[in-house]
């Protein structure tokens, strides 16, 4: 298959076009780092959705719940760990952060398992019911979050090592954003390796192309489904935890709030495509930060304009997956 590189050029093109518009180089660097960081977090939240769609043909409107639950899980652990949070130094910060992030992933993954098992399994193959059921799940679980964690917004402190910023040349770069970029790249690399270099990844990709064939070769596609759903939910939980620390607060609606943005990313990338999703997330993140600086009023709508433009260029997204 011929590689299609053109969409990849979009990221540097947008960044370069923004440079003269922004005017000053240090501001541009700050904005670009912020945009990349935001893109990485969006990617973590969106990648599970696009994988689940690609493999199982299920569009999960309740994906936002996994994001919120991940954020709440991380917040619960972090607020319990105030001793480690207050202590100076990387080691103690990590000893609070790692359990928090693991808790977020575990909680979201468990919820994902429950969700697939109880809610989605009976409605495979019926899009209308899937949309309705996952909307229902969104309503119920958002309310359950209120029951468990209370209706108020929880402020979320960030550990000392990753707050504040450092200066490169004249540009101020927030530490947390660099951390987000690193984690995001690691997640993308891990996903890429798993999908392209392991047997499971091979089966997943084959399942996306043609599930019946994989099944007839003797593999249990059902188990693969569950695994991918759980992994996707866990990723959403990780993204939710990162996003919550970025916003420094947690509320039950945060998942639903980012859901529209995630859908846009998934549409831009091409439904089911992980690479496209990564690219789409970066584009949305960069554009949001540039327009937020240049034309604040446009910022909220910029990603929708981007989606329209991309769809005019490639009606099925940047990297469409085999199935129409």
């Amino acid at each position: 298959m011929k590689k299609d590189w053109t969409p990849l050029a979009l990221v540097p093109v947008i960044a370069l076009v923004a440079l003269p518009l922004v005017g000053s180089a240090p501001t541009w660097v700050t904005l670009t780092v912020a945009g990349l960081a935001m893109g990485m977090m969006i990617f973590m939240m969106a990648s599970g959705l696009t994988l689940v769609f690609g493999l199982m043909d299920v569009l999960n409107f309740a994906h936002g719940v996994f994001i919120s639950v991940g954020a709440y899980g991380a917040a619960t652990v972090l607020t319990r760990m105030s001793r480690q949070m207050e202590a100076e130094g990387l080691a103690s910060d990590l000893s609070a952060m790692i359990p928090a992030v693991l808790a977020a992933i575990a909680l979201a993954a468990f919820l994902g398992w429950f969700f697939e098992r109880v809610l989605i399994r009976p409605v495979y193959g019926d899009h209308l019911k899937q949309i309705l059921i996952t909307m229902g799940g969104l309503i119920v679980f958002e309310q359950l979050i209120h029951v468990v964690w209370g209706p108020d917004i929880i402020p979320l402190p960030r550990p000392g090592t990753i707050t504040g910023s450092f200066i490169v040349g004249e540009a101020a770069i927030e530490r947390y954003r660099v951390a987000a970029v690193v984690v995001g790249l690691a997640v993308f690399a891990a996903m890429w390796l798993v999908l392209n270099r392991t047997r499971i990844g091979l089966l997943v990709r084959a399942g996306v192309e043609n599930p019946e064939m994989v099944e007839s070769l003797g593999y249990r596609i059902r188990r693969l489904f569950v695994g991918v759903f759980v992994a996707g939910s866990g990723l959403a939980g990780l993204g939710g935890a990162m996003w919550a620390m970025y916003q420094e607060q947690v509320n039950a609606q945060m998942g639903a709030q980012v859901l529209v943005m995630i859908f846009i990313v998934v549409i831009i990338g091409g439904l089911g495509s992980v690479g496209g999703c990564f690219l789409g997330a970066l584009l949305v993140g960069l554009l949001a930060n540039y327009t937020g600086y240049l034309a604040p009023k446009l910022a909220l709508g910029s990603n929708i304009l981007l989606m329209v433009l991309v769809l005019l260029w490639r009606p099925r997204g940047l990297y469409p997956i085999g199935k129409a």
Partner: peptide, 13 residues
């Protein structure tokens, strides 16, 4: 809304 949501899911099924 929680209870109406549960009713909603039961209705769909």
């Amino acid at each position: 809304l929680l209870w109406l949501g549960v009713l909603f899911i039961l209705c769909v099924y």
